[in-house]
Design a protein around this nucleic acid. Structure first.
Length: 281
DNA sequence: TGCCAGGCCTTCC
DNA sequence: GGAAGGCATGGC
């Protein structure tokens, strides 16, 4: 069995893959199995060491490091946000080592369109179904896996086809976005080079992408960690911790986050989100 | 059965 | 610009 080892600091594989930012990783014993770019990855963590296997060992270390954001020094980031306030400090203690992934831009766009008014198991099911139907099949250690399809691979897929993947009323949103990409009305490569506010505006022009979904894409694919997506869970935890459970608008919550969390808002958001979902805060 | 799920779109004011 | 209602589908 060919395998590489990667030494890590301030990194927790479980928190990173189970905090709700990604939908396709599966746990199998002590390993997580998923897809990065065009290869299947099998990965586990033991202390400060990652053990990684793949159907394609070429350049594997740099692919893994980029995806898990391992080239960034999180000691400084964690040190900084632990000083924000007592709630953030406590949340961070529970989920230290959680990082934001650099997920594929197109897959993240489609996945988060599907996430609107949905639940995580069903989002996973839909994304897996789209991959299985339209993505490239890869065999690894006797099992079959599927890459998320490219826009090109989806060019003939109809609204009804998406509906059959279980995406519900979001079918037409995905269809519309894929069509815009294939008609060159938008260019995904150029978008990723834009500054955060321009990129956000561009995303908001797409059907099915509102403020929350746009911010999730910015955070979980584009590494723009200053954004602060507000969903029902974040709304809940922010009201509880900072507004004494009284009714406040999302605008007020956003202002609080902006004023108090600054450029680390996205990272803090994810720690608070994971903590309240796991009932740790 | 009715309510909720990592919201967004449309309509209306 | 902001509020209200509708929306697919599955789990509880």
């Amino acid at each position: 069995m060919e395998e590489i080892k990667i030494k890590v600091k301030y990194f927790n594989l479980k928190y990173t893959l189970e905090c709700g930012q990604c939908f396709r990783w599966k746990k199998q014993n002590e390993f997580y199995i998923g897809v990065i770019k065009d290869r299947v990855i099998k990965i586990k963590q033991d202390g400060d060491t990652l053990y990684v296997r793949s159907n394609d060992m070429n350049n594997l270390e740099s692919v893994v490091k980029e995806y898990f954001d391992l080239n960034r020094d999180y000691s400084q980031i964690e040190d900084r946000i632990s000083k924000v306030d007592k709630y953030v400090e406590k949340a961070l203690k529970n989920t230290s080592g959680m990082r934001h992934l650099k997920q594929d831009f197109f897959e993240t766009i489609v996945s988060y369109i599907i996430s609107a008014n949905n639940n995580i198991p069903r989002i996973s099911k839909s994304v897996n179904e789209i991959s299985k139907r339209y993505g490239k099949e890869i065999e690894f250690e006797g099992e079959k896996y599927y890459l998320f399809p490219t826009p090109e691979q989806l060019k003939d897929v109809t609204i009804d086809d998406y509906r059959a993947c279980g995406v519900g009323f979001r079918d037409k949103y995905i269809y519309s976005t894929v069509k815009k990409i294939n008609n060159n009305e938008i260019n995904l490569d150029k978008m990723q080079e834009m500054d955060t506010q321009d990129l956000r505006k561009e995303l908001l022009n797409l059907m099915g992408i509102g403020p929350k979904v746009a911010d999730c894409i910015l955070l979980f694919s584009c590494q723009r960690q200053e954004v602060f997506p507000i969903d029902v869970w974040v709304e809940r935890v922010m009201k509880k911790l900072y507004f004494n459970d009284k009714e406040v608008s999302k605008k007020e919550i956003l202002k609080y986050a902006c004023d108090n969390f600054g450029n680390d808002a996205g990272i803090i958001q994810q720690h608070l989100f994971y903590n309240i979902r796991e009932n740790m805060i």
